[in-house]
Amino acid sequence: MGLEYLTFYQGNLETGFDYIYAKKKDDHAFYVNAPAKLDLDIMDMTDEKFDFSQKNRLQITIDKDLRPFSDVWQNITFQWPNVERQLLAITADWADDYAKEPVGPVEEWGLTIKMTDQEPRIIVGYNEFPDNFDQLVRWLNSYAQGKLR
């Protein structure tokens, strides 16, 4: 069993949604941070062409669907085992649904975790969060700053 991919989103209809994607494909793994301000399309992690690597650089620049992401991806191949370990540790006791009646703007979020030979686990919430939710957000966003783990 191993982590194939994760997708995380957070935001609302007013401000837009920040998306983070991470995926292991063949001999490499990549991370994409797509903040709401970039107004990028939501990507399908199961799409074979959603693939970012140095050897795939030319395809990224000419493909109309991949080109908008060309400046927001990173190679995390050697970090992938730690990504899997950290993700599973943080979310180990998370429920699949978190919901609290909104008293103001709704803050939606979701996390999809796909492990090999298993159906994807989808965790969603609005206006309610697991106790260590901020830890997950800080950790996922730290990759965008190019920090090595």
Results as ranks from 00 to 15, higher is better:
residue 108 E to M: 12
residue 48 E to Y: 07
residue 141 N to R: 13
residue 36 A to D: 10
residue 6 L to N: 07
residue 9 Y to L: 11
residue 51 D to I: 06
residue 35 P to F: 01
residue 60 I to A: 00
residue 85 R to Y: 09
residue 69 F to W: 00
residue 50 F to T: 04
residue 101 E to Q: 12
residue 92 A to H: 11
residue 95 A to M: 15
residue 99 A to L: 08
residue 106 V to T: 12
residue 45 M to Y: 01
residue 117 D to E: 14
residue 9 Y to N: 14
residue 55 K to Q: 12
residue 95 A to V: 09
residue 36 A to I: 06
residue 87 L to S: 02
residue 58 L to H: 07
residue 53 S to A: 05
residue 54 Q to D: 14
residue 65 D to E: 11
residue 50 F to I: 02
residue 45 M to R: 04
residue 34 A to T: 05
residue 1 M to D: 09
residue 84 E to T: 09
residue 111 L to G: 01
residue 124 V to A: 07
residue 3 L to R: 05
residue 144 A to K: 02
residue 113 I to V: 09
residue 133 F to A: 09
residue 63 D to H: 08
residue 73 W to L: 02
residue 146 G to F: 11
residue 19 Y to P: 00
residue 83 V to G: 03
residue 37 K to S: 13
residue 142 S to A: 13
residue 67 R to Q: 13
residue 145 Q to N: 13
residue 118 Q to K: 13
residue 141 N to G: 07
residue 111 L to R: 00
residue 131 D to M: 07
residue 82 N to F: 12
residue 17 F to Y: 15
residue 7 T to C: 12
residue 105 P to Y: 07
residue 100 K to Q: 13
residue 115 M to Q: 12
residue 87 L to C: 01
residue 67 R to F: 10
residue 121 R to M: 08
residue 29 A to N: 02
residue 149 R to S: 08
residue 87 L to Q: 00
residue 31 Y to S: 08
residue 109 W to H: 06
residue 39 D to A: 13
residue 147 K to R: 14
residue 86 Q to E: 11
residue 98 Y to V: 04
residue 59 Q to L: 13
residue 16 G to I: 05
residue 76 I to P: 00
residue 57 R to Y: 09
residue 76 I to E: 06
residue 126 Y to K: 14
residue 38 L to I: 05
residue 101 E to M: 08
residue 98 Y to T: 02
residue 24 K to P: 00
residue 103 V to I: 13
residue 80 W to E: 09
residue 52 F to C: 01
residue 79 Q to C: 07
residue 149 R to F: 08
residue 141 N to H: 05
residue 96 D to Q: 14
residue 57 R to H: 06
residue 139 W to V: 12
residue 131 D to W: 03
residue 142 S to R: 06
residue 94 W to T: 03
residue 65 D to A: 06
residue 68 P to G: 01
residue 5 Y to I: 04
residue 23 K to S: 05
residue 81 P to M: 03
residue 87 L to A: 03
residue 99 A to S: 14
residue 103 V to T: 14
residue 30 F to T: 05
residue 19 Y to M: 09
residue 51 D to N: 12
residue 103 V to M: 08
residue 3 L to E: 00
residue 91 T to Q: 02
residue 109 W to R: 05
residue 26 D to Q: 15
residue 145 Q to Y: 13
residue 84 E to C: 03
residue 71 D to W: 05
residue 83 V to N: 03
residue 43 M to W: 10
residue 38 L to Y: 06
residue 44 D to W: 11
residue 63 D to S: 06
residue 120 P to M: 00
residue 67 R to S: 07
residue 101 E to L: 11
residue 59 Q to E: 11
residue 82 N to H: 12
residue 97 D to G: 05
residue 88 L to R: 11
residue 149 R to T: 07
residue 2 G to S: 15
residue 11 G to Q: 04
residue 99 A to M: 08
residue 145 Q to G: 14
residue 90 I to P: 01
residue 122 I to T: 03
residue 139 W to L: 07
residue 128 E to N: 15
residue 96 D to V: 13
residue 26 D to S: 11
residue 89 A to R: 14
residue 137 V to T: 06
residue 102 P to L: 00
residue 86 Q to D: 10
residue 136 L to D: 01
residue 29 A to M: 04
residue 2 G to L: 15
residue 54 Q to K: 14
residue 96 D to P: 08
residue 74 Q to M: 12
residue 138 R to E: 11
residue 61 T to M: 04
residue 17 F to R: 00
residue 123 I to R: 05
residue 137 V to D: 02
residue 42 I to C: 07
residue 16 G to R: 07
residue 35 P to V: 00
residue 57 R to T: 08
residue 9 Y to R: 11
residue 89 A to T: 09
residue 138 R to K: 12
residue 116 T to A: 15
residue 68 P to H: 01
residue 27 D to T: 15
